[in-house]
Write a protein that binds this DNA or RNA. Sequence first.
RNA 1: GUGGGCGUAGUGUAGUGGUUAACACGUCAGGUUGUGGCCCUGAAGAUCGUGGGUUCAAUUCCCAUCGCUCACCCCA
Length: 360
Amino acid sequence: MYSFQDLGGDSITLKPEGTAPVCRAYIQHGMANLPQPVRLFYENPHFRYERPQAGRVRQHHQFGVEIIGDPSPQVDAEVIELGWTYLSSLGLQGLTLKINSIGDSECRPAYMELLGTYLAEHESSICEDHQKRYKTNPLRVLDCKKRSCLSVSAEAPSSVDHLCDACREHFEGLRSTLDDLVEAGAMAPYTVDNRLVRGLDYYNRTVFEFEPTEEKSQSTLLGGGRYDPLIEILGGKPTPGIGFGSGVERVMLNLKAQGIEVPAARPLDIICVHVGDNARRKLIILAATLRAAGKSVIVASEGRSMKSQMRYANNSGARYALILGDRDLEQGEATLRPLTTDAPEKQVALDAAAIATEVT
RNA sequence: GUGGGCGUAGUGUAGUGGUUAACACGUCAGGUUGUGGCCCUGAAGAUCGUGGGUUCAAUUCCCAUCGCUCACCCCA
């Protein structure tokens, strides 16, 4: 975690993830009294202290969703489908969806023991780092991307083969819903991956991740899972929850790698070009009125030649130039000139409402 | 925390132990009289990351430091 002392000597820790804060908010703001389940999302900065590298920065932004208050596998599928829709609608290709069930407090202890025994039998094949640590956290070995560990984890016992009845039923419910969605073409196919785990014990049952085709050490684009025990741990009444988080910068990295253009910001609607001082004053008023009508408007800087103003309008990517000279002022009309199309320019009355209807 | 690579105008890059550090794009202006885009001309803009050292002389060589970056580590 990114902790430090601020100038006043207080110890500050920056928020590292989204799910627990959302759950705290759920408790603190009495969202248990809203119609259940509640569906929430966030998009905000998160921080980590580890040294930055490709796909990992100290301050990044995470987009996430949570559904709190529904234990059914139906919402697991909904969350996964939403994650798929989010990533695929951006145009990302070659996404792999992996799912797994890590059981719950009922069945996990026995599985962990089984896994621990298996790892002990294959200790010599585990990578150096994990030889020392597999006893305290055997799940880490499954997550390890080193070749030696991969060969061990591939043959390791799968948690889905050792679920209690309730967890198995839940997982089967999820799979059948996902299968329906896949069959209907609403989602990409998935694979069950017994190596998909979560280190923290507030996670249970469903876990899932979307990865790009080229899997590297820091590559997960979107990951999530069920955290039924969490709200109770945080001091609330037992309340199930599931959600996902997705790193915005990492998604952007993948968009870039696939040559996908991020849609440009909405262009400026109008730049007002003036000839003469009276015209400029009138344009300032018109611009204010047009802004109130929802248009984005800039009045070109005072004292520039018309050519300069037009060049500015062009280079700014504005859609229209509204041209007003002192001469036009007497006629009571201005020229509205399209800049991004070859449509002819129009004479318009000096009336914001009339101009706004021309700028659609 | 560990190791590698890199730090030159807004951006991307050249470059050299020695007079005013170059180019492209971008920005701004002008190319006459109230109309952008193309073209032409011109201008602004860099203490060559910072500090120290070697040297008659350093942006160029050396060291340190900071920053960026890639990997390791770690990973709620």
